[in-house]
Design a binder for these strands. Structure first.
Lengths: 343, 343
DNA sequence: ACCATTAAGTGAATCGATTAAGAACCGACA
DNA sequence: TGTCGGTTCTTAATCGATTCACTTAATGGT
């Protein structure tokens, strides 16, 4: 009797002279057979070198995988290079590892969830993926999703309290009721267009991150007794230096020239600071600028950026925990105002 | 006729009035059916919302997964924190992503390959995993393995040319034929013991990284016309500050007091430098110390560490490429001597 | 001694696919 | 007309497991 190179449940059952079901039960349902029988079987398997049911087959049958895909906003390369993203990943992996769940990295550049969707229990999606199709697919085919820093309107998501945070930072930036405010918004609109927005009405009920932040700003502006003109807002389609610079230049040379600039990301704020300095303005005397995120570069910049800092690692832990709990809710994470010299 | 929430090959075949096999062939063997039939089927699937064969089932049947597990030396946390490791990962992921292969992160703390072995095409193992059992399991159950920075004696591996590199660095450190040399070795022995080694003979044919490096050192020592005493070598079981400090202290206070210290990792070298400074020695006047790896901390240390630097990202790319090629060979990567003030 | 319970173990359908082997059909050629 | 070769499609076994429904044996109560 020649021992097969690798055992299967079936072959091992035949070898031991018991049924398929009994071996399976020995491994995962102890209550279904006598203790003696069970131990006898497990011992025999160990001796013969059968390490337990094949996980792929098990997963096909059960429909669970013990794998979650982390959808990155961009390439895997980007993820391990960016310190904020790395922290987030650290948080996620710590929680998953503790629960014996494996992490599959999935690039946001991929144009098809297909290659992994059948292999995972679900997705943790860190930021809106670069490839827009992925969002649609997540909505449609994912068994379970936790989104971070954006919403797709299903399952769970984790965000900072955007409304409160942006209210706080705006309140800090505003000083007098004759301040001239301008807003540099990130993805206020669905389409990818860089533009000046003349009408806020439609945003007032919006649930996107950007809309929440906008409402925070508006409330602080209102509280400060300032009247915001209806052409004081720009929409930037993605957090890139190029778009941000253009918008910043526009805003800074608009009439009346603003002396407070509320920016929805640090990257935008930094671009704005560069433009302002280039125009010979001094910060914060001529113009006060605040950001959102708390990236390192903002702290190194001169003047140091005033912004909202989020705890990324904590965010990761919460996202993973939320994923495991399968609850359908929006979690909020802490933030701190990080005061610099830019306001 | 109510459309099922999610289609399967079978249900879609019945719906279209063709056989299972025909649909399957439409998706993966165009030559098995007429062009017309094929296009008709694919179009119908698209319209009905069937996105193609379930990957999990496909993989079970075919035995291929399009997933490779990256076995980390330690937790995932550690991996994304360590810049050298991150670079490596960047290299790996770039190549895999280009080939449409997904990356599964697997912690070296796990004590069982079991949870993933049935899900992946193989393993890229970055450094000897913290949990020793994993190594045994890799040898036994992995379909395909590429090891990096260590060997398990099967499939492929990628390493720096340890012999040449350590020869070079040692040659650089040695100046006169009355130099008194000591060696701080990393994992010269299989067991986890910190000890002083009195006998090199058995290492002379060894294939481990440590043995290769040792031979490089010995050759340089020999070439320099130096006679190495047979008690001038210490074995450190793992690259940890604690062990390294103890060994360094021992070596530095041994007789004759060495004036050249060859260290098999930067971490060991740094610990040695700290001990030397603590003992009031000056570097490099009283003692010249060299390391191996090229970690950032070594460049920040005063005096700057002289060491061997390896290109980690390139290492990652090569590891992944080697994995994909399925060839069974040992690849070598480039290294550069990084000269500091420690020698 | 009889019947009702419970415990232990088995048979067979099933998860969602792939693929070898064979059936049906078509036109062509002798 | 009969049959041959080629194309197109189907049947059914298989990958490696889980689990429901069932049989058999043992126990207990009266």
């Amino acid at each position: 009797m020649t021992k097969p190179k690798s055992w299967t449940l079936k072959s091992i059952a035949k070898e031991l002279g018991v049924s398929n079901a009994t071996v399976s039960n020995a491994f995962n349902r102890p209550d279904q057979l006598s203790k003696a029988r069970r131990e006898e079987i497990l011992a025999a398997c160990k001796k013969l070198g059968y390490f337990g049911p094949n996980k792929a087959a098990q997963s096909l049958r059960r429909g669970t995988f013990n794998i979650v895909a982390l959808v990155l906003p961009d390439s895997v390369e980007y993820m391990v290079s960016d310190p904020v993203a790395s922290s987030f990943m650290r948080g996620v992996s710590a929680v998953l590892e503790k629960n014996g769940i494996n992490l599959l990295l999935f690039s946001g550049n991929n144009d098809n969830l297909n290659s992994v969707v059948d292999f995972v229990d679900g997705f943790i999606c860190y930021g809106r993926p670069r490839n827009k199709q992925l969002v649609e697919q997540l909505k449609q085919v994912a068994k379970h999703v936790v989104t971070v820093d954006f919403n797709i309107g299903r399952d769970a998501s984790v965000n900072v309290n955007n409304h409160q945070a942006s209210f706080d930072i705006a309140k800090h930036a505003l000083q007098k009721n004759d301040d001239r405010v301008a807003i540099l918004g990130l993805r206020l609109l669905d389409n990818d267009v860089l533009c000046r927005v003349y009408e806020h009405h439609e945003f007032e009920a919006g649930q996107s991150i950007a809309h929440q932040r906008l409402r925070g700003y508006l409330q602080a502006i209102n509280d400060a007794g300032i009247t915001l003109g209806d052409d004081r807002t720009w929409n930037i389609p993605e957090s890139s230096e190029r778009f941000a610079s253009i918008a910043a230049k526009e805003a800074l040379s608009s009439t009346p020239r603003p002396n407070v600039l509320l920016c929805m990301s640090d990257l935008i704020a930094l671009a704005a600071m560069r433009e302002a300095l280039k125009m010979g303005l001094s910060i914060p005397e001529d113009i006060r600028i605040v950001g959102f995120d708390g990236i390192d570069e903002g702290q190194r910049f001169v003047p140091k950026l005033t912004t909202v800092h989020q705890n990324s690692e904590e965010k990761g832990r919460i996202a993973a925990t939320l994923f495991l709990s399968k609850e359908q809710q929006t979690a909020e994470i802490d933030y701190q105002l990080q005061l610099g010299q830019s306001s």
